[in-house]
């Protein structure tokens, strides 16, 4: 299995719902807490596993706005794992999820240096590395109702721009979406082979306009003949 997310850039409105859902679930989840430094002071700075960035593509007046949520891509070639000296970072063989064993991490930051996607953040209080767990503690928890065995960010996304599934299964929704919508990897040239896939914005919908053939009552009101229409 190769578990991961599809993120739809065509519909993401950048609401940050997935970011706080993630923080909420995971602060009491297996990787938590996700501490916050100076939470009510100057320059609050905490550990997040999912962040939303917004870009503008093109120049005034021909530009568009794109919201891009980013969390761990659960890369196939996860250098964050190979560089880790303690073995705290690992990629699960059975499903490809990349995790950090909080009991073993020494907080050297090296894995975050190795990650091109900014997916790892050091906990300011615990000093251990935090990252997206793909909500391993939801997707496998049989005590949750079936429909809720989904990552917190996926469950909450109000535009359903996030889809979770198995990329090894060609019939899964994620595989289908990636195929049909021309899913892209970010920075493929680095060779990390990220699993998370981004669906590019669709082409803008073109709507036909009414063919008017010059019918116009511009000149006089009188030309508009009353039709007999029963009320």
């Amino acid at each position: 299995m190769k578990l991961g997310l599809v993120v739809d850039l065509d519909t993401c409105v950048g609401c940050h719902g997935c970011a706080t859902a993630c923080k909420q679930w995971n602060t009491s989840g297996t990787i938590g807490p996700l501490s916050d430094k100076d939470p009510y002071g100057r320059d609050p700075n905490g550990a997040w596993l999912n962040r939303i960035r917004t870009y503008e593509v093109g120049d005034t007046p021909n530009s568009k706005t794109v919201n891009m949520p980013m969390s761990c891509m659960h890369c196939d070639n996860a250098a964050c794992v190979t560089v880790c000296p303690t073995g705290a970072s690992y990629k699960r063989e059975e499903d490809g999820i990349v995790l950090v064993d909080q009991d073993k991490c020494m907080g050297c930051n090296l894995c975050s240096w190795a990650c091109p996607y900014g997916a790892r953040e050091l906990d300011p209080h615990q000093g251990t590395m935090k990252k997206c767990t793909l909500c391993v503690d939801r997707i496998y928890d049989e005590r949750l109702p079936k429909g809720e065995r989904q990552p917190a960010c996926v469950l909450t996304c109000p535009t359903k721009s996030r889809v979770f599934g198995d990329f090894d299964d060609p019939d899964s929704e994620v595989s289908r979406l990636a195929r049909e919508r021309g899913g892209k990897q970010l920075m493929p040239e680095l060779g990390y082979n990220p699993v998370n896939t981004y669906l590019p914005p669709r082409n803008k919908k073109q709507q036909a306009a009414y063919e008017t053939s010059g019918r116009s009552v511009k000149d006089t009101v009188k030309q508009w003949v009353n039709k007999v229409i029963a009320r």
């Binding site: 100076d38 939470p39 002071g41 073995g87 690992y90 995790l99 064993d101 615990q126 767990t133």
Partner: peptide, 25 residues
């Protein structure tokens, strides 16, 4: 207001990577 906040509603349950896996993988 605290300088540091580490909220969780219970003690977090860590997923442990076995030492054997660390040494052999």
């Amino acid at each position: 207001s605290p300088q540091m906040l580490s909220y969780s509603s219970h003690e977090n349950v860590n997923l442990v990577r076995p030492m054997s896996d660390i040494l052999t993988r």
